[in-house]
Amino acid sequence: MYQDDHGFTCELDYDPLDDAGVAKLDEEDQDIEFIGLVGSQKRLEAECGDEPGRSSEQRINDLLSSLPAQKKILLALIDFCRSARSPQEVDEFTQAMQKTNRSVYTPVMLRQLLEEAGALIYQQDEQANEETVAVEPLTQQDGSETEYLVVQTSAQGNWLSTPEALVLYDALDPLSNLKTILGQDNEYLEIYRRILEFCADEPRSKIELNVLVDDDPLLQQPRRYSGYFIDRLNEYDALAWMPLWKTTDIGLKVLVECALSEGEAEQ
């Protein structure tokens, strides 16, 4: 018999199917399947970052793919925290990046996501690692000799990228990825080149890029617009919004390689 806080009682071993003669199932039985889980098992497993089956690398990759709009900032944070950085330094760095990539994610939220995925760790003094530090009261006395507790500033920790995150970051090859994607879009190479060259001189607006390529015969059938190319170049780090579209270093490298290969072909 069980009695809850409010006085309700119930038979813990009550089985409504007893009278119908239906035997109870043995929960230890291997063939038993459980139902009634609230939410998807897969999602719940994905949310439990520490289960042994998933490595840090998998969790970091999952994070990056689940937040494509934040991917660049997250990767930049991993690179930035190669050496220990104070929360203020990471805040400033993140806010500088978010100037051209506005987001509802605050710097603290992004750090939390990276920490949960195993990409960043917060290092504190050993003494400060306890969840709550027992603070020795610092008392002050005013003129009437009343004693007061004064809030102290706790020792600040630093953010540091984990080795797993750095391995993952260093293995990235954005130039090669870009070349691969350009190779797949072979028939539009001229459009890609024109956009990268146009934005290499100075930052350009979307309208300018529309004017540049939208009327090109190549894009009439099937119909494509400048947005298609901007998205792909941006996704593969060849174009960046700052706050107009500007060719990145990776985009410039591709242009140089294109020019070289064209030169070789002509010779």
Binding site: P87, V108, R111, T132, V133, A134, V135, P137, T139, Q140, T146, E147, Y148, L149, V150, V151, Q152, T153, S154, Q156, G157
Partner: peptide, 27 residues
């Protein structure tokens, strides 16, 4: 600043807990 001795045990406990918690505040 939180008074150490207000004459009320609950208030003292509250101020002491506030002090400890706020001294451990982080991001």
């Amino acid at each position: 600043r939180f008074p150490v001795n207000t004459g009320n045990a609950d208030m003292d406990a509250g101020y002491r807990l506030f002090h400890t918690y706020l001294s451990n505040a982080w991001e």
